[in-house]
Design a protein around this nucleic acid. Structure first.
Lengths: 221, 221
DNA sequence: ATGTCAAATAATATCGATATTTTTGGAGGG
DNA sequence: CCCTCCAAAAATATCGATATTATTTGACAT
């Protein structure tokens, strides 16, 4: 029925495509917190069938970006200061564990990956904001990935996304860049390359807590 | 089409019903790790449509009980000693955080709930194994729920389920009862009621690590 | 005998349509 | 004037069917 037009050659399954697009829309606030997510409406927005949309929403439910209400459909997850503070707390806890384990397993290949990702991130900061966001997450996940704890990494990734959502909502975009975030990243990188777990975690957590305070300060509800 | 026979009056939506049943089957090992989960086959087993089955599998994916492979369908998540040890590690980390926060918020109502759940669990241990399992989880979650950190509680619940799966797989059922698990629960309860966070976490983690060692010892792959 | 390619088969992913449930809107009674 | 109840409308949940994609089987050439 649909002619497979691979002109863009990006996504494989319609479900996965819908998942990615919806996730982006919720993270960036294009679909605001608490908004009712009607299948028909989304079906139009993503021009795909109802089944992929439904399945994408189901998947987003487990990422805690979408809530399911009885048999009354779905809505974008609400936000609250409480929720934000819990995310911050868990992130600090889990990322410390992951980073320490990552450094404990440190080897040359990992260090190379780190340097590479950091370089990509610096390059991307000159380009578009979405590119920087992707590279930024890639760098942070690279810091943790050497722990070789897939479940932990998954949780960290989820919490990262939940956190970034608050950044978008608070600033309508990455306006937090005013702080010298590049220096903070450099400190974390250097400490990790030195295998100095204490210093690296200290810098990492300060990095998170500082953005946390900034965002927390401009939240009302 | 389907006559709504609420004779059992249990489940509301077909999707949720399928989710619960599949989850149980995977946790208990009725659907063994790594097994291909074909839609048609499950559709027959649960006698429902393909859509609810698909959606249930999607949900189980995020509970890490089911894996999705490209566009080649689903399979029950594999198991490994590595995976088990990660679950144990994360559980110890997260439950310690949750229990300490729970105790910090301690109030009379919570203590009452704890005592009640503990009582229910003791009563249920005389009845059927599934009843005990439910009560056992309810008790453990009650220990943590007063932290009032919903995300954390959710992770703990997920990890609890992943862990219980290994228990079923190792013993074909709760044969681990040989150890005096009742005494361990009593110690945890008493410490929690005393608001002694250090003692409570110590007992809780020992509780987990002891079962962990037992299970780890009889795992080959 | 073996490796490769192509047709047949099976299973998934997706669509369109239907039945069920929830919500809305309005009429009648208190 | 407000509350309750019933009918109409909308939206969801589910089903059956189709098209797409992966897997297997068998034939042919090497």
């Amino acid at each position: 029925m649909d002619v497979m037009l691979d002109t863009e050659g990006k996504e494989t399954s319609a479900t996965h495509g819908a998942y990615r697009r919806l996730r982006d829309m919720i993270l960036t606030g294009e679909l605001p917190p608490g908004q009712k997510l009607k299948i028909e409406q989304l079906r139009g927005l993503l021009d795909t069938g109802a089944s992929p949309v439904r399945e994408a929403l189901s998947l987003l439910t487990s990422d805690m970006l979408v809530e399911r209400i009885d048999q009354r459909g779905f809505r974008a997850a609400p936000v609250s200061k409480c929720n934000f503070e819990e995310i911050l707390l868990l992130r600090c806890n889990l990322e410390e564990t992951a980073l320490r384990a990552s450094i404990a397993n440190a080897d040359r290949a990992w260090e190379d990956r780190l340097v590479l990702r950091h370089h990509h991130m610096k390059k991307a900061s000159l380009k578009s904001a979405p590119d920087f966001e992707d590279a930024h997450k890639a760098f942070h996940m690279a810091l943790l990935e050497n722990a070789k704890l897939p479940l932990l990494l998954r949780y960290c990734s989820q919490l990262y996304d939940l956190n970034i959502r608050y950044r978008y909502l608070a600033a309508g975009g990455p306006s937090y860049k005013k702080r010298d975030i590049a220096a903070e990243h450099q400190q974390i990188l250097d400490a990790a390359l030195d295998h100095d777990a204490d210093s690296a975690t200290q810098h990492l957590l300060n990095h998170y807590r500082r953005t946390g305070e900034y965002l927390s300060s401009q939240m009302e509800s």
